[in-house]
Design a protein around this nucleic acid. Structure first.
Lengths: 342, 342
DNA sequence: GCTGGACTTTACAGCGTTGCAGTACTTAAG
DNA sequence: CTTAAGTACTGCAACGCTGTAAAGTCCAGC
């Protein structure tokens, strides 16, 4: 049985509360007493019991992160950043996989784990922000694109503008027959709707009419979906000279199809993705993309939670909307490879 | 303030304990009473407080998973499988990133979060199994290759045999000048030592002498390390006709360097990796590799924890060693591309 | 010496839950 | 009719911790 304050107190010859005071850094403890207590703590290997602290009304030091699927690199990297950002505060992160299911997202924000966690960072894909109320809920931060203001804090890039920037990058290279892979296949796919909107905006601004069949919907966001969508596009006889893919994974799949058919990237078709996952830096060719600064987003999300935890619910300021800058990262899949060496 | 048993009891007109009995499925509750209590639970949105349960000596429904870094696809995918395997049991997973630091690994097994979690699944990279004692620790399961029996349950493939199989696959294709990328750069890198040993065994069995300089050490296991190691190998003037890489990420980096130098894969150099991460199925060329059946490993690890949680510590059986079958997955990076179509 | 104040330590209650012990009733067995 | 066994429910205590209140200690200043 692990030791508690009781055991430490007995060993140090003081009251339970004095040990508690030492553990919590209360100032009015005699140095000599503090030393004796500390010695007992070390000797017994005492660790405070967060369950008891939590029960007492305190914080547990655990926050939740809800993502659709860790097996997707984008969310895995995001999760890694969140865990890393939480560590310096002594927080650990509990992971929920929502599988993109709206009911799971709602349950979580409604407070499914409310007793176990101090706050939740949610990367929702299926639920409109306005519906994400937190009844008995815990402090929440939403990540990613949302089309309406919700009742909780929100951190994201301007997804429409980013998609437009990606498209303009292709336009700037002289491409005019620009397709898009990853059009939404259902109305709840908010993120993809934004990206499609940005694509359309950029084309319209350049005075280019949208071509029928150049917006290819996908059923999922996996490499396989990108590969399959690209094949479908080519099989219609379409011959784009550039493709904007709504995620890097789609782009990597699309490139795979292009190369299999001996279509040069970027010679024949330039490809740009979105997310700047790690794999984009090492693919062949390396993938141009939009960098949403996930590390910064993770840090801000953790900081926002940190602020909320320090607030009285009564005096809490209204939900905040934080906009993070994105940037276009131009790599080989649009610029081409540098001169070869051997 | 979220409702507790007290509130539910008041609403249903029964005692606190009866509500507790309903929540826990105690059999001797009259159907009519049960229905009334259930109605109150639903109306108030009652959720049991795991902190209180835990304090009372019960289980919290939270397990920990310790991995070096979620931003590495191998561990991210593993984590995804663990979270998915835990979900049907109603467990949530708390993620610790150890950064490959032995002290963190030791702290965790020693019971750093002992009060918050019911068990821990650890994927250690820096600590010999024998040192992973759990003093006040919680039920633990170790994943991955270990060179000595430890005091806790352990699930892994036979890493030496798997590396030998990978090397034999290259030998079977007629390759004789086989290099290895990812030799350990320090003695604690147990996993890589095993894989190097398997490589050497296979070569020796085939009567091939090890060449000096054909075992390239790496400082990390990232794509960049693989790319850099491959460049280093080629810059020495070595001309291998095959490379066994200790991880898929190293292999993808190595392939990147080869292609940049116009060395055909697998025409000039066949490459095989290890891990079967998702990216290996979609790289260009697709990557041959060893599949360690991570999904199965995750499932077994969760099941082992489940068994341990149901046991009295006194009657607990001794640590188990579970061996999972691996298999060689031959793809384009060793077999070549199928005929092209357009 | 006495008062007041700062410093140091302590007792107690209660957070939400469940194991245990126990009460009150009902039914079956002897 | 008595006893035993079973069913339905309840009350209490304790898990480990910390906020509050309060008690005890010490010393400066009058």
């Amino acid at each position: 049985m692990p030791p508690g304050l009781k055991d430490v107190a007995a060993r140090a010859g003081v009251s339970i509360k004095t040990v508690s005071n030492v553990v919590n850094g209360y100032v009015h403890v005699a140095p000599e007493t503090r030393a004796r207590v500390q010695e007992a703590i070390d000797a017994l290997g005492y660790v405070p019991n967060p369950a008891a602290r939590r029960l007492r009304g305190g914080l547990s030091g655990v926050i939740a992160l809800a993502v659709p699927d860790l097996r997707s690199p984008y969310f895995a990297e995001l999760a890694g950043h969140v865990v890393a950002a939480a560590a310096p505060r002594g927080w650990t992160v509990l992971i929920d996989q929502t599988d993109g299911r709206g009911d799971r997202e709602l349950d979580l924000v409604a407070g499914l784990h409310r007793h176990a966690i101090d706050g939740i960072i949610l990367s929702p894909v299926a639920t409109p922000a306005a519906e994400l109320t937190s009844r008995h809920g815990v402090p929440s931060v939403l990540l990613g694109e949302r089309n309406s203001r919700g009742p909780v804090d929100h951190v994201a890039i301007d997804s429409v503008a980013a998609a437009a920037d990606a498209t303009r990058h292709l336009l700037g290279l002289g491409r005019r027959r620009i397709a898009v892979i990853g059009a939404p296949d259902r109305p709840t796919a908010v993120t993809r709707q934004h990206r499609l909107a940005g694509y359309r905006t950029a084309l319209a601004d350049a005075g280019i009419a949208a071509r029928a069949g150049f917006a290819v919907p996908v059923g999922g966001l996996h490499r396989a979906d990108g590969a399959e969508a690209m094949a479908r596009l080519l099989d219609t006889g379409a011959r784009p000279d550039a493709v904007f893919c709504c995620t890097d994974l789609l782009a990597l799949g699309a490139i795979r199809t292009l190369l299999e058919r001996d279509i040069d990237v970027p010679g024949d078709v330039a490809v740009i993705g979105f997310d700047n996952i790690d794999a984009a830096r090492y693919s062949m060719p390396t993938l141009s993309t939009i960098d949403p600064h996930n590390e910064r987003i993770a840090q801000i999300a953790v900081d926002l939670l940190g602020e909320r935890l320090g607030e009285r619910p009564a005096t809490a300021p209204p939900p905040r909307e934080i906009r993070v800058e994105h940037r276009v990262i131009a790599r080989e899949s649009t610029l081409g490879r540098p001169p070869r060496r051997r």
